[in-house]
Amino acid sequence: MRLLLIRHGQTPSNLKHLLDTAVPGPALTPLGQQQAAALPEALAAEEIGALYASTLIRTQLTAAPLAERTGLEVRVRDGIRELSAGDLEMRGDDQAIETYLTTAFAWSAGDTTRRMPGGENGVEALGRFDAVVAEAAGTGAETVALVSHGAAIRTWVAARAANVDVAFAAAHELRNTGVVILSGAPDEGWRLLSWEGRSVGAEDSGPADSGPAGASVEDGLPDQ
């Protein structure tokens, strides 16, 4: 299966560098709306057979233009929502962001019993994302798109893709409407094919200036 993991468009909390992870969350900024509107053209070559979004409003708004283009129903699932910030919710200070990311990438490295302060642990976070991916694989679609969140995508890819590690995910931000493409299956494992349009293994020319669907804000590492 070809798995497209898409980060949502820009939100007001991205502009403020906040750990905004609670449901329902904010809507998109005008730029975020433009990014979402550009996704169908950016992904025109993909034959998407199933489309998912998280329970946070920003992913559903991002998925809507794709749903209109493909004629697919957006399947809303809690499992691919952002990693819960717990006690760090709505903070944007360096200490909170460092704690959030350190905890998330510890899960990717195998320390899944570690718990986000006041929030979930890695077993819970990775398990719920796994469940949606397994459901998507069960649809029989050759290509599936999941509109999710930056930290959730980076953490899951680092934990599940055989050809990249935590260092890769930590070094590569995922910008608004950035797309990560993997190939594989839940029972066979996953390989990362490309990250924001760059093939994995190709010489890295540095961070991209934008996601594939338009300019993005420099919004810090958490990527909610």
Rank of each mutant, 00 (worst) to 15 (best):
A109D: 14
G110L: 13
G110I: 08
T112L: 09
T112Q: 14
T113F: 02
T113R: 12
T113N: 11
T113W: 08
T113D: 15
T113Q: 14
R115P: 01
M116E: 05
M116Y: 04
M116D: 04
M116T: 01
P117V: 12
P117G: 13
G118K: 13
G118F: 09
G118T: 10
E120T: 14
E120I: 07
G122I: 06
G122H: 08
G122Q: 09
E124G: 00
E124D: 14
A125N: 02
A125Y: 04
A125Q: 12
L126Y: 12
L126Q: 09
L126G: 07
L126R: 11
L126S: 10
G127N: 10
G127M: 03
G127D: 06
G127T: 03
G127R: 06
R128G: 03
R128M: 04
F129L: 09
D130S: 02
A131W: 00
A131R: 06
V132E: 10
V132M: 05
V132I: 05
V133R: 02
V133F: 09
A134V: 07
A134M: 01
E135N: 04
A136H: 01
A136R: 02
A136G: 15
A136C: 07
A137F: 11
A137V: 05
G138H: 03
G138K: 07
G138N: 05
G138D: 10
T139F: 06
T139P: 01
G140L: 05
G140I: 05
E142Y: 00
E142W: 02
E142Q: 15
T143V: 15
T143S: 13
V144E: 05
A145Y: 05
A145M: 07
L146Q: 01
L146R: 00
V147H: 06
V147F: 04
S148L: 08
H149N: 14
H149K: 13
H149P: 13
H149R: 13
G150K: 10
G150Q: 10
A152C: 10
A152K: 01
A152V: 02
I153S: 01
I153G: 06
I153P: 08
I153N: 01
R154I: 10
T155K: 05
W156K: 09
W156G: 07
W156R: 06
W156N: 08
W156Y: 10
V157K: 07
A158I: 04
A158G: 02
A159N: 08
R160M: 09
R160A: 12
R160S: 14
A161L: 06
A161H: 00
A162M: 04
A162N: 06
N163L: 11
V164N: 12
V164L: 11
D165V: 03
D165M: 08
D165G: 15
D165C: 05
V166E: 15
V166D: 11
V166H: 02
A167F: 01
A167H: 11
A167V: 04
F168W: 15
F168G: 00
F168D: 02
A169Q: 11
A169L: 01
E173Q: 14
E173A: 14
E173R: 15
L174V: 09
L174I: 15
R175P: 01
R175W: 03
R175M: 14
R175D: 12
N176A: 13
N176I: 10
N176F: 06
N176V: 03
T177E: 10
T177W: 05
G178Y: 12
G178H: 12
V179H: 02
V179N: 01
V180F: 08
I181P: 00
I181M: 07
I181R: 15
I181V: 15
I181H: 05
S183A: 13
